[in-house]
Computed example of a mutant assay.
Amino acid sequence: MRSLQFRSRGASLSYDLTGQGDPIVLVHGLSGSAHWWRRNIPALSAAHRVYVLDLAGYGQAWRQRSLGVREAAALIAAWMDSLDLHRVTLIGHSMGGHISMHVAALRPARVQNLVLACASGLLRASPYRVALNLPRAALTGRLTFVPRILGDAVRSGPRNLWRSAADLLRDSVQDLLPELRARTLVIWGGRDALVPPALGRALAAAIPGARYEEIPRAGHVVMVDAPARFNALVLDFLREEERAAP
């Protein structure tokens, strides 16, 4: 796996690259990092070129100031332009799903498939209420993953976390959902205590042709809590496209 960096207008994006084939881009959520996809990368990279991002303020890029969801989306769009990526499958978790919807709206000719995992685009609450739900959200998922959640949060720092949380809660994707043209799969954890499954169903209903899948025993970090099922859903979704191609 190669570690690389992209810079544009004073902001930078760190990413790892592995595999061969059509591109998959993995976008982590609030307080996350590239490490959150560790259980998914081997399955996804077997037949795809996988780019694993660290957003500004997180993971390898923790020293930077975090960006708002629209700023982050514009940076990812510019990065995709710089690499001339086509037939992209964007997979975003939580805040990363929120960002990915904006990227798909900005670059419809590049983003072919969109996978939204417990995405935050329709979440409406105060940052304080979301903060209060974080411990419960962690405890409804895989307990062995809690140290990673805490470690990444500490590394990002309270200012980056607060800035990101406040921005995503101010931003709504409601108006852009009917305009999305990417094939879309929405995956949710049935035990998600941070972004309730009802919001996932509403998200899927608002995106033309979107499919909704719920994994009953998974929590908010669905790709960590149920990696085998998550990977199977994503790969089956991509194979459906391949079978439908002339």
Rank of each mutant, 00 (worst) to 15 (best):
Y212P: 00
L161Y: 12
E179M: 01
R201A: 12
P178K: 08
L169P: 07
D175I: 02
I187G: 09
N160D: 06
G190L: 13
A182D: 08
A210R: 02
V154P: 02
S172I: 00
V173Y: 00
E213I: 05
L168K: 10
A210V: 04
L203E: 06
A202W: 03
G190N: 12
R163E: 11
A193S: 09
Q174C: 01
D175P: 01
A205I: 01
W188I: 11
L199Q: 12
E179G: 08
G157W: 13
T184R: 04
R181D: 07
P158N: 11
E213G: 01
P197I: 07
I149A: 03
Y212L: 15
A202F: 06
S172Q: 13
P208R: 08
S156C: 12
V154E: 08
D171W: 05
V195W: 05
R201Q: 14
L176I: 15
L185P: 06
R170K: 15
W188F: 12
A204S: 15
L169W: 06
G190P: 12
R201M: 09
N160C: 05
L180G: 03
A205M: 03
P147W: 13
P158G: 13
R181Y: 02
I215V: 11
A205L: 07
S172E: 11
V186H: 05
S164E: 14
L168H: 13
R183H: 11
G209T: 04
R201N: 08
V154Q: 11
R155S: 08
L185W: 06
D175G: 07
R183W: 04
Y212K: 00
G190S: 13
D192H: 13
D152R: 10
E214D: 04
E213A: 14
A193F: 07
E179V: 03
V146F: 11
V195F: 02
A210H: 03
R155N: 02
G200W: 04
L150G: 00
G200Q: 05
S156K: 05
W188G: 10
A166C: 14
D171P: 01
R148A: 14
W188P: 10
V173I: 14
D171F: 03
P147L: 14
L169N: 09
R170M: 07
A193P: 01
W188A: 10
V195P: 02
V195T: 12
R181I: 02
D171G: 06
V195N: 08
L194M: 15
I215F: 01
A204F: 12
L161K: 03
W162C: 03
A193L: 07
R211I: 09
A206G: 10
L199N: 08
P208L: 10
I215A: 01
G209V: 02
G200V: 01
D167S: 15
P196T: 06
A202Q: 15
A153E: 05
V154C: 05
R159L: 14
S172V: 00
V186F: 07
S156T: 12
R183F: 00
Q174L: 02
A153I: 05
A206N: 11
D175A: 10
A153W: 13
S164D: 12
A153H: 02
